[in-house]
């Protein structure tokens, strides 16, 4: 039984859905949510944190819906890690980290800072006196304070220099807590998540073990994402010239951008099993898998 899962969840703002009918299990080994801006990945993360009520479907926390859950227990179990810009600029680092701790445990701040590789002497500083990488470590220390079983990470390294990013990834990979990672960076998902879900226009278009999904995509969108990432010394990534096409309102949402689209794609494809442990919502999945 997984701690947190979404069952046929539709989410939106002001009655307008932006995430459609998503089912997702937070299994062990890290789960990645991959997608471009506007794909609905952050909206889904907000729902997993209980910050947004589903329009339909449910988020399950253990054996009951999240909306009926004991909030205090949930806050201890599940903690968000946002980008470092979310730190209160007026608060000292020590106070920021201590916020989540019960009064009698406030002495643990130094231990938490050490756990994320920071000098405990930094507790007296304010965020602007730290580097970007140090601030991101503070955000992680803060989340770890309550001893969560699951971390929900939204682009935890995207604002950082590569050498700093590498060290933060090492830190995250070594933590005991499970993780749901939201990112547009495939390399980060590959490093931290055993399972991945690819979102396009608020729909899961593909899911499966990360390594296989990236090595041999079953959905043309996953393939396009992977091939657009420049490789050191590789050829320039191919430009499709189609990224402007808006998601189709009917049928497969990707069909207006898809190089493989056929008449059949005017009928919405179901997310179905296309290989062992792999699911894709594409009429042409067999061709994409090759």
């Amino acid at each position: 039984m997984t701690m947190l899962r979404a069952e046929r969840v539709t989410l939106g703002y002001g009655g307008r859905p932006v995430v459609h009918d998503v089912s997702l299990d937070l299994t062990e080994g890290g789960v990645g949510l991959i997608g471009e801006s506007g794909s609905g990945k952050t909206t889904l993360a907000r729902a997993f944190l209980g910050l947004l009520k589903p329009m339909s479907g449910d988020i399950w926390y253990g054996e009951r819906p999240l909306r009926e859950a004991d909030r205090r227990r949930f806050r201890k179990d599940v903690q968000p890690v946002f980008q470092a810009e979310a730190l209160d600029p007026r608060m000292r680092i020590g106070a920021s980290v201590a916020e989540g701790l019960p009064r009698h445990e406030r002495g643990r701040v130094a231990e938490l800072l050490e756990q994320v590789g920071l000098d405990p002497a930094l507790a007296g500083r304010r965020p602007h006196q730290l580097s970007g990488g140090q601030r991101q470590r503070v955000v992680i220390a803060r989340a770890l304070a309550v001893g969560p079983r699951l971390l929900i990470l939204d682009e935890p390294t995207s604002a950082l220099d590569v050498t700093v990013q590498a060290r933060i990834l090492d830190l995250l990979a070594g933590l005991d807590a499970e993780r749901l990672l939201i990112t547009h960076n495939l390399a980060v998902v590959r490093r931290l998540c055993r399972t991945s879900y690819v979102l396009f226009a608020g729909r899961v278009v593909e899911s499966g073990p990360t390594a296989e999904l990236l090595a041999r995509p079953a959905h043309p969108y996953t393939r396009a994402l992977r091939d657009a990432v420049p490789r050191l010394g590789g050829p320039p990534p191919e430009a499709s010239g189609r990224t402007e096409a808006v998601p189709a309102a009917t049928g497969c949402p990707y069909r207006l951008r898809c190089p493989l689209a056929v008449a059949e794609c005017e009928r919405a494809p179901e997310l179905r099993e296309v290989a062992d442990g792999r699911r894709a919502a594409c009429h042409r999945a067999a061709d994409v898998l090759g």
């Binding site: 471009e36 547009h184 657009a228 430009a239 990224t243």
Partner: peptide
């Protein structure tokens, strides 16, 4: 920019 969009801008620069 998103990676797929980045690819297009790079193509234009080339």
């Amino acid at each position: 920019l998103d990676v797929t969009v980045q690819a297009e801008v790079v193509a234009v620069l080339r």
